[in-house]
Design a protein around this nucleic acid. Structure first.
Lengths: 369, 369
DNA sequence: GACGTTTTGTGCAACGTTGTAGTAAATCGA
DNA sequence: TCGATTTACTACAACGTTGCACAAAACGTC
């Protein structure tokens, strides 16, 4: 009986499609699958140029594309990096994903991404499924405080790098290797706060969503530290945390910022400046100020964090704390791929990058009221 | 000799990692790989509940994750949808990717995305590599005018849907099945232009990057049609196309919009209103107007296209033509998955969705100058 | 022309999973 | 107690590729 393919049977219901295999190529080129495989893997010294050329022609003629699934079934992994982020719909994470993809492409890897909305269960499901596809390296963008949910996978050999999430504590607990990279969040927040203090502001609001990530807590600390250093008492009422039941504002960051600004500016003694947890919140704060009939920067100064490209285009251009995203992610990808390919080993690396304050038009000296 | 794994050899240099296989589970559960496979595939009627439970326990204990690579080697495909877009860094495409991911998840698929920057060669490389991973369904977001570069793959069985790109012409040429979905671009542009005309504007600029996509040309036609219908002669000088040598402004849309607005508003007879090819351009146009010392909407009205979430937050809130992205992409994913799973067949489907004008604060009646 | 040597090419057993075709064990009817 | 059924489970050959170990030419060399 002819053993050639009979596809599309079974319960799976996925449809048939004709696939050109290495064997078809070998047949047409009058050679063996092994030799074709040798061509694919660059072992050209093991054949006559003439043979190679015949194979190349056959491949082109049949439109052959190697089946990566089968190819990597032997090695057990696949040149894909997993990327777990809260939501690509947020311009910050969009730019993030773009930078990761560029850096990965430079190393011959592709990127499989998932929006996990900072939900540990979702992150875990996601990481599990990546593992199942042979993905052995994952970048976690701003995860929840704990990484327990991926420890199992990491123990089994998953290489991970976290962005904006210091994993030093986690390491000690379980002896597991997780690299991390982040900006010095406390410093960034201090820079922003000191800038506002220098402009004469004394009541400075802190505009954040839920404080359940390491980076947000660090920014809060930086803000408080700067206030204390200036002899001011950080007032809890000026810290806006949203409602605990709600999300992190990853999709609706601007909406959160708007509501928060409206709330803070509606206080009996409203702040004269706002430090937002990120640029989307800050841009939302513009709208919130407008809702209260206040102008930026004349009535309220606003500082953001991240320096997304919208910061410069915004009206007025946003003063913000810049994270050098592209460079950071190049480093991240390098760390990860080096570990995957075995050229780096040893204890986890925790890179901390220095942020920079970019002064634009959204901050002004407090009117001598 | 023990045949258990010896990994990490070979030239590939990809590192070892211990992998739990179906056989390990079978061993621990004192049963056969086949039975474990039956559990995995829900054929529970073929075993005692007790056996099933033993297997479940073994899987949990070993932390077993099925190897999708091997699993799908038989079926030849994988529950992943490919997504080819210009750039995730652009908030529109970010939201786009998010919607696709949500819809795909609802159908049990994941999304592998790539930024192709509208470069046909890049798109082709990308589609090839997706094919190699067993991906049999791809969504193309706003591709170049021609789809020749993926025809080969489509003939081999790739299922594709294009967004914002009518493939009717392509079909006739090669008899290949490509579904498409798009908004009625001409109508959207007409709506926008008529709105501006109704406000009394007579010199209306058309702010676009290179006109090398179907959707952009259609929008231009809609704009021209509306002008003609109002008895006006569309003036070529009012159509800004950027420089042909440059990109499409997918990453730097706002920057393009800013430059274009600056150019148009610097004309001897400047327009009093601008219709931007998309919202990022429109937001950039705000900055361009500001550069010229003009205010929106007092001195210039601006209309965008897409209705990205920033449109509402912007200062002033942007009047724009809304594309119902979420619904469109749900339809797109449904079409694609149905084809993949064989529940839909027949000739290509070309869905055209009706856009809606959302009037906000960036347009105003022309001052009776 | 018999022997090494190099060059060029091939056979085969994996990789982890699936589904069919099968066997073994339990149950049943008479 | 014997065959016939049903139930519970398993053997095995794929899927497309890889890389080692091996084989067959081709080429000296004396």
């Amino acid at each position: 009986m002819d053993r050639r393919r009979v596809r599309g049977r079974g319960s799976g219901a996925l449809m048939a499609s004709k696939v050109v295999t290495i064997e078809d190529v070998a047949l047409l080129a009058k050679t063996s699958p092994s030799t074709v495989s040798n061509v694919l893997n660059g072992r050209l010294d093991r054949m006559r140029p003439e043979t190679q050329e015949r194979i190349q022609r056959a491949m082109a003629q049949l439109g052959y594309t190697p089946n990566q699934l089968a190819r990597q079934l032997k090695t057990g992994q696949v040149p894909i990096l997993g990327l777990v982020i809260p939501s690509v719909a947020n311009p910050f994470w969009g730019a993030f994903a773009q930078c990761v993809e560029e850096a990965a492409r430079g190393r011959g890897y592709q990127v499989l991404f998932g929006n996990a909305g900072r939900d540990p269960a979702q992150e875990e499901r996601y990481a599990e499924s990546l593992w199942g596809y042979g993905v052995r390296g994952v970048i976690f963008g701003s995860s929840p405080l704990s990484l327990d949910h991926v420890q199992g996978l990491v123990r089994r050999g998953l290489r991970a790098v976290t962005f904006d999430r210091d994993t030093r504590g986690a390491d000690r607990g379980v002896g597991v290797e997780i690299d991390s990279i982040s900006v010095d969040n406390a410093l960034g927040a201090r820079l922003a706060t000191e800038h506002l203090l220098a402009l004469g502001h004394r009541r400075i609001g802190f505009l954040s969503g839920p404080l359940r990530t390491a980076s947000r807590l660090q920014r809060l600390e930086g803000y408080r530290g700067a206030l204390r250093a200036a002899g001011l008492d950080p007032h809890p009422a000026l810290v806006w945390e949203g409602l605990p039941s709600e999300g992190f504002g990853d999709v609706e960051g601007a909406e959160f910022g708007r509501r928060g600004a409206r709330d803070l500016l509606g206080l009996a003694e409203p702040p004269t400046a706002l430090f937002a947890i990120n640029d989307m919140y800050a841009l939302g704060a513009y709208a919130g100020a407008r809702d209260r009939g206040l102008a930026v920067p004349d009535d309220v100064s606003v500082v953001g964090f991240d320096d997304i490209f919208l910061a410069e285009v915004a009206q007025p251009a946003l003063t913000t704390v810049r994270q050098p995203l592209r460079e950071m992610l190049r480093t991240t990808v390098t760390m990860l791929v080096d570990r995957l390919e075995g050229s780096r080993d040893g204890p986890a690396d925790h890179t901390v990058v220095t942020p920079e304050l970019i002064v634009r038009a959204s901050t002004a000296a407090r009117e001598a009221a």
